[in-house]
Design a protein around this nucleic acid. Structure first.
Lengths: 222, 222
DNA sequence: CCTACCGATCGGTAGG
DNA sequence: CCTACCGATCGGTAGG
């Protein structure tokens, strides 16, 4: 593996664990087994290294994109469930990825706007259009905000992966043989929610009982 | 306002913006209008200040707890929608709160385990029991994992609030008069999802079409 | 609450 | 890729 790649990998781990601004070049150099000036040969500044790490991870969206588009454009009821499942796989296979992106979104919101627009927003819109299409066909509840739905699922799955090490629920003792590589409970529930929250015409009408529905209006009056 | 409180407030803002480890005492001192040694008079170390800020925010859960318990123990269909709405209010009224907790969960997972167990886990379990009760009455879908559901909603609402400044969707041009203080779209959708994802017996059966359901098994085999 | 100061560590450079 | 070194900033202390 090239020295550059080794540095990128170590930087991803360190920066995702403590945040880029709280990670020193020395920590990264130690992890690789070199001295800090050697890092400067491959990357002109610390900030350039941070950006390289970030852009490498963001560009990985392209790996899941085909699967994602294919799954959601296909017909059938499981397709938006598949969206959440694939998304979970993408983040859980490298938890440092989820943490890094979450951190950068909080550390540098303005800079991340640009990256979101370039790497992520376009295909979120594409998938949202699939949801919208299903909605117009009546396969999906009419009060779903398609674009907001996809964004919520992405951020929720990402946050879930980022916090996976901090929030651990014990697996439920279930009947049947032990499944070795089990999907974590939070992820499993998130996938279930994605599916069931899209179903059209739920049993209860939207405005259910007198005056106790619709918190939207009275919520933020303070 | 006491000097101590001024320091705590400034520290919350700075630490939530850049992370505690990337925030210097000088940044906090400047925000308050004092010098760094003056901070050390009120807090013995930087770490003690960080813990004081964190514990102050975590203890605020007690403010919403009564409302939360009351809303979810009440009967009616809007109660779990109310859970999400109240939770959103709690985090959105002070976005720094959501960011700080998200960051600490990533920075110091082991330390946060203790705080979660002390401040949050008990009443999450309490609300989960309400969901479980509604489930056994048939008011809530049978395949809901009650505990996981509440945790997912808490983390999702928190992440949504933490990223509110980075991810902005334009409000949808809707009929009717302009609502001045509108609930953001992502939050609105999150509330809708909480409600609709709990409904029992959705139109489609769980295992819908031949072989394309249940991603749980085949998801993580790689 | 301040000034003055401490050793340690930071990102980065010079020169090889 | 290294050693040697730079000025700046870090958390924290002494003393008032």
């Amino acid at each position: 593996m090239s020295a550059r790649k080794k540095i990128l990998d170590a930087a991803l781990q360190e920066m995702s664990a403590k945040g880029a601004d709280a990670t020193s070049l020395r920590m990264i150099a130690d992890a690789v087994g070199i001295k800090t000036p050697s890092i400067m040969y491959h990357f002109p500044t610390k900030d350039a290294l941070r950006k390289a790490v970030l852009e490498e991870q963001l560009s990985r969206w392209n790996d899941v994109l085909p699967t994602l588009i294919m799954a959601t454009s296909r017909d059938g009821n499981g397709r938006f469930e598949a969206l959440t499942a694939e998304l979970s796989k993408f983040f859980l296979e490298e938890p440092a990825r989820a943490r890094l992106i979450m951190r950068e979104l909080m550390d540098r919101p303005e800079e991340m706007q640009l990256y979101l627009n370039r790497y992520i927003a376009p295909w979120i819109q594409l998938i949202a259009e699939q949801v919208q299409l299903a909605r117009s066909k009546g396969n999906v509840s009419g009060d779903v905000d398609a674009t907001a739905f996809v964004w919520v699922m992405v951020t929720s799955v990402m946050a879930n992966a980022a916090l996976a090490e901090s929030i651990r629920l014990e697996p439920i003792a279930e009947s049947g043989p032990t499944t070795q590589t089990h999907t974590p409970r939070l992820t499993q529930e998130l996938i279930r929610m994605a599916r069931s929250s899209l179903f059209s015409s739920p049993l209860e009408p939207h405005h259910s009982q007198k005056g106790e529905s619709s918190y939207h209006g009275k919520l933020f009056k303070r």
